[in-house]
Design a protein around this nucleic acid. Structure first.
Lengths: 202, 202
DNA sequence: AAGGGCACTGTTCTTTTCGACAGTATCCAT
DNA sequence: ATGGATACTGTCGAAAAGAACAGTGCCCTT
């Protein structure tokens, strides 16, 4: 859809977004140059032309502050994949598992999730995580004790609260009908950390 | 908070909002004058000064297109207000209660919510609704038995599962530590229906 | 080694835009 | 009846802003 930006172009785009959010208007070439530390406002012009060419902004000719952020730039990569049933052995984000994708705005969760996971079963119901809920997961291979994590033991993926002992790890369910699972720390693969939840009522 | 606008001032404000949404930038005095049909751009200037005085916009001096819409004027499409502590007796969407607003994409919930409500207390914890969660609520003054509703008895607003009997209504908590509340159907005001939930992990 | 994209500096010219000033007319409250 | 708020028309000068042009240097691919 939109071309990839260079590092500098990304900085310029972020700078415009910031200015827009602070003042409600787009920066002029001169303001942009000053914010980015350019000596010449033509440097800003060049970047703007690049951003327009790549589809991130629209420039209104001969209009002051005529920089219009397009969707691609305004809500960057806000579509997250929803992972459903996890095929044994495959990495959790394998394309085959993508159920659909859901737009998740920047800032909806304090920690930006990497993907969404459809919860199966009620082993975490006392933590308010019910069957069918979508949980927002930040991909990570480490976690602290006490965090709710998406973890894999052998080829089994589950959502549980992590408790770390010395050399061992325990996955605690939040439901009296289930029992904790303790394994050696080396047998456990952390897939990600629970950062939020979305539930759609019937 | 903000003064009442005259009819013409409201039209000008709407006009600016429209222009902003179409082009991503605020109109100049001249553009505003043309859109409103003024012969003189000073008419636009006068209106802008009035809008600033009344707290709807902020004018950035000597900056082109320096019209910044303030919160009072801007309730953007995707953004839903988050209602916090509900002041007794006031309608639930009273401006005073707005904590902040959160972008909620179209289609995130099957039923489009009207506002979000910050949950206080754990009376619905067995339904997976925890203290601090944001629930998505569709404003409605009617509900079916079995739905989770936001309801008011006198000046108390709570979230409970609704059970309707003949002539009476029962609000069922989802927590053994709380008891059901049964009242006459006429004493109960339904504020809205639970349509979804958003949780932000620490 | 040659060309192209990227990332700038520096300058000039023209248009856009703001802001200030000088008026007019209507309505409303004191 | 008088003053103030509202709602405009019309003009002007100065500052702000965009656009175009002429360069430089770096890196990467061919």
């Amino acid at each position: 859809m939109s071309d990839k930006l260079t590092f500098r172009q990304q900085q310029v785009l972020d700078c415009i977004r910031q200015f827009l959010s602070d003042t409600g208007m787009a920066p002029t070439r001169a303001e942009l140059a000053e914010l980015m530390g350019f000596q010449s406002k033509n440097a800003a012009s060049d970047h703007l032309r690049a951003l327009e060419r790549k589809g991130y902004v629209r420039l209104h000719n001969d209009r002051s502050r005529g920089i219009q952020m397009l969707d691609a730039a305004l809500w960057p990569e806000d579509e997250l994949p929803v992972v459903g049933k996890v095929a044994a052995g495959l990495p959790i984000e394998a394309i085959e598992n993508v159920e659909r994708s859901v737009p998740v705005p920047q800032g909806m969760f304090r920690q930006r999730p990497t993907y969404l996971l459809r919860v199966q079963g009620d082993s975490m119901k006392d933590a308010g995580i019910l069957d069918g809920d979508l949980i927002a997961v930040r991909k990570s291979n480490m976690a602290r004790s006490g965090q709710i994590v998406v973890a894999r033991i052998d080829d089994d993926v589950t959502v549980k609260t992590l408790k770390l002992g010395n050399g061992s790890a325990t996955l605690m369910p939040a439901n009296d009908d289930y029992s904790p699972i303790t394994v050696g720390a080396d047998q456990l693969v952390i897939e990600g950390i629970f950062v939020g939840l979305i539930r759609d009522a019937v």
